[in-house]
């Protein structure tokens, strides 16, 4: 019994020293943590560590960031890699249409995309997934097969439905990102700032099209296969731990070119253009063909349309 008050009396004093030492400890630990974080990211420079969100940095800062990135890439790949900053074109809203009556499931688009956009070859990342479906069943995701591998395509009784980012007007992936590392540009392209992404993968869970992909491992991109014409918000090389996605080939389309998948497809299945231009191919399709939206009921409002050209 007598011990008890003694202990209690001693408590405040000890607590006092205790808390001050904890404060001291935390301060030391804080410094150590930053040091450890920097040490842990072996290739992460201090500039990169303190770099702010793409949408907040000034023009001057951007210049230094681009210079730094280009230097890093040159060192890594042993050749000049340009990182572009082409802004959205005024009066342009990009749209895409895919002709389900033409696609033969040859996957030329899948690999054309990988080549253009510098995806990791190993671990493998592909932005386009071609689903094989039964003509009998129609569009039925439950029974779609992305792993089909016959000698020749198209196979009797089947049709093919390539799926990639739908560039939604109402993108769930953007809504859930806790740090604002992904957003929709004025020309309708949803982009990712790879230097701001924390790799939480909320966006991947939110996307109903499976269009976002995570770099689980350090991306392997052989230097001889790199496409050196890149865009900051598009196909510049990524690192481990960030999410990436289709950008309609932002590095090409903002320079007036067609996306790579449009040009590589041997059947002319893929159509692309400006939704605000009444003369565009894409507007002709929307006005004259049977068009459907994939998972329309989710109100994502895709700017990627499927149609039957027949």
């Amino acid at each position: 019994m007598s011990d008890f008050p003694e202990t209690r009396a001693a408590e405040p004093e000890e607590a006092g020293t205790g808390s001050s030492s904890r404060r001291r400890f935390l301060a030391t630990a804080g410094v150590a943590a930053v040091a450890a974080a920097l040490a842990g990211c072996k290739n992460l420079s201090l500039e990169e560590f303190v770099q702010r969100n793409f949408r907040e940095v000034s023009k001057d800062e951007l210049k230094t960031i681009i210079a730094r990135l280009e230097k890093e890439y040159a060192a890594k790949f042993g050749k000049k890699v340009t990182v572009g900053l082409e802004p959205p074109l005024p009066g342009v809203l990009f749209g895409y249409a895919l002709d389900l009556s033409r696609c033969i499931g040859c996957r030329r688009c899948v690999y054309g995309c990988v080549k253009e956009n510098n995806q990791s070859r190993d671990p493998q990342i592909q932005w386009i997934r071609v689903l094989q479906m039964d003509k009998e069943a129609g569009v039925d995701i439950q029974h779609a097969d992305p792993y089909y591998n016959p000698e020749l395509v198209p196979q009797e009784g089947h049709f093919y439905m390539p799926v990639q980012c739908h560039q939604c007007k109402n993108p769930p992936c953007v809504k859930v990102c806790p740090v604002g590392a992904t957003w929709q540009e004025p020309d309708g392209i949803t982009v990712v700032d790879y230097n701001w992404c924390i790799g939480c993968r909320y966006c991947m869970a939110a996307c109903p099209y499976g269009a976002r992909h995570f770099n689980w491992g350090a991306p392997h991109l052989p230097p001889e296969e790199i496409n050196p014409a890149t865009h900051y918000l598009g196909n510049r090389p990524r690192s481990k731990g960030v999410v990436e996605k289709c950008t309609f080939c932002i590095q090409r389309v903002r320079n007036g070119r067609y996306p790579a998948c449009v040009e590589v497809c041997p059947t002319g299945t893929r159509k692309f253009g400006n939704l605000l231009d009444p003369q565009s191919e894409i507007r002709y399709i929307l006005e004259n063909k049977r068009v459907f939206l994939f998972k329309e009921d989710l109100n994502t409002q895709p700017k990627f349309f499927y149609f039957y050209g027949v």
Partner: peptide, 25 residues
């Protein structure tokens, strides 16, 4: 009539996707 062609390889199944262990970005 459009002639059938050989498809490019299917994607790797997720269970067989393996990065280099401990590889740095």
């Amino acid at each position: 009539h459009f002639k059938p062609i050989k498809p490019l390889p299917p994607p790797v199944r997720p269970e067989t996707l393996r990065g280099e262990k401990g590889a740095q970005p």
